[in-house]
Write a protein that binds this DNA or RNA. Structure first.
Length: 426
RNA sequence: CGGGGUAUAGCGCAGUCUGGUAGCGCACUCGCUUUGGGAGCGAGUGGUCGUAAGUUCGAAUCUUACUACCCCGACCA
């Protein structure tokens, strides 16, 4: 992509509406713009990151054996009546009517729609287990949207639903998903904790949350200082107890003592059991030829929230520091004097083409601006690798490589392998 | 919904107390000079001061109502 053609409105000052660092940087780096409270437009730079995360999630889901579908955002009241959630959900469920005055809602989650699909189309235990997922826009009319896309009302989520013949089989799928989520977060290079949780309004038996650790996290979690154990502090507190009183107490798992941390909940996995299947009469025939109520699990990852969470964990005073796997571009070629000097223009354009052919996602900063402007923008938007073609090149044919963290090296432009070797170690 | 705050050009802000017909920095446009850390000079574009009503000869400024947005709390990927 040529920088001069890209809709990338970077800002020197963060708009006053933004409070937390990720929100500020997403606005400054031209990733999103607000349309209404909790509702955002994703600009090209933001969408590129969103798609990269989406693809990591998709790859890992597919690898786990799950199958992708796409369900509607608009859902009829009748389905929600079956589980009584039309009543239970309250004002968070955004209700609308069509031209015939029939009631619908904007989907905040899809248990009803998917269970309806499965009960109508799956008849035998032989077709199980099934794990069906989608990556789709959700709408929850949050009481208080906050922190940009971190808690939007409209947001992108991967939600999956498993259908199992019995509890043991559900447990197995649950563990597979647990592992899948670990892989997703590890591929994104995020520091996270798996936290025992309250299953909340969605209901069911067992549930765990995946938290990306960050100071600005909305949740407080208690972690053991000497094991993997972590639990939502809500589950540990007795009436009237203060969160800080937990610090230093023995960890409930018997290993080490409790530390209090802040986390951003980016994933949540549940063993729902038979709740929804019973309400909606979702059965299959078992191996004895008798109707058997399905066991369900549901598993969510906040894809758009992960964008914000990744920034919360990876930034410095200059801007975003993207983990390589989700950076909007791998390499930014900063061409100084692109407009003026044909030698620079040709060299940088050829290198740009060459790197794209090698499979890299490359940005070429062909703007008329000077070095300062270009490197500031590159640091702000957090491109991991930079190649600077300027004065040095005109004198000695050398170009400079520079990582986002500031490591630099020089090489002849003809030796592009050196470039890649340099970046490979970083 | 309870509490607190903000609203003036795309972004950041001044002007409001003490009413006199809107300004600064950045961005943007044109020209020339620049180009290795957000360049310089010159000339420009852009605002019914959140909305509505009121007070006044005159309102960004005073009064009232409303709206939007942000922060703290209950809820959640």
């Amino acid at each position: 992509m040529l920088f001069s053609k890209l809709l990338l409105p970077t800002l020197k000052d963060a708009p006053q509406e933004a409070e937390v660092i990720s929100h500020k940087l997403m606005l400054r780096a031209g990733m999103v713009r607000k349309v209404a409270s909790g509702i955002y437009t994703w600009l090209p730079m933001g969408l590129k990151v969103l798609r990269k995360i989406e693809n990591i999630v998709r790859e890992e889901m597919d690898a786990s054996g799950a199958q992708e579908v796409l369900m509607p955002m608009v859902q009829p009241k009748e389905l929600w009546d079956e589980t009584n959630r039309w009543e239970k959900m309250g004002p968070e469920l955004l209700r609308i009517q069509d031209r015939h005055k029939r009631d619908f809602c904007l989907g905040p989650t899809h248990e009803e729609v998917i269970t309806d699909l499965i009960r109508n189309n799956v008849k035998s235990y032989k077709e199980l287990p099934l794990n069906i997922y989608q990556i789709q826009t959700k709408f929850r009319d949050e009481v208080r949207p906050r922190y940009g896309v971190m808690r939007g009302r409209e947001f992108l989520m991967k939600d999956s639903y498993s259908f199992n013949i019995d509890e043991a089989c559900l447990e197995e799928t649950y563990l597979t998903m647990r592992n899948t989520y670990k892989k997703v977060l590890e591929r994104m290079n995020l520091d996270y904790k798996i936290v025992s949780a309250d299953s909340g309004a969605i209901g069911g038996d067992a549930s765990e949350e995946f938290h990306v650790l960050a100071e600005t996290g909305e949740d407080t979690i208690a972690v053991s200082d000497s094991s993997e154990y972590a639990i939502n502090t809500e589950l540990l507190l007795k009436d009237g107890e203060d969160i800080s009183s937990l610090e230093g107490k023995p960890s409930p798992d018997g290993k080490g003592t409790i530390e209090i941390k802040k986390g951003i909940e980016v994933g949540h996995i549940f063993q729902l059991g038979k709740v929804y299947a019973e309400d909606m009469k979702a059965n299959v025939l078992n191996n004895e030829g008798k109707a058997s109520t399905l066991y369900m699990g549901c598993y969510g990852i906040g894809v758009s929230r992960l964008v914000a969470a990744a920034i919360e964990q990876n930034n410095d005073d200059k801007g975003i520091v993207w983990p390589h796997s989700i950076a909007p571009f791998d390499i930014n070629i900063i061409a100084i004097g692109f407009e003026k000097d044909q030698k620079i223009a040709e060299a940088s354009y050829n290198l740009y083409k060459e790197l794209i052919e090698m499979g890299y996602d490359v940005l070429l900063d062909d703007r008329k601006d000077g070095f300062g402007t270009k490197i500031k923008d590159s640091e702000l938007i957090g491109i991991p690798m930079n190649i600077i073609i300027g004065k040095q090149f005109l004198e000695t044919e050398e170009i400079e490589f520079r990582t986002r963290s500031g490591d630099t090296s020089l090489s002849k432009i003809s030796d592009s392998q050196t470039i890649l070797d340099f970046f490979k170690d970083k």
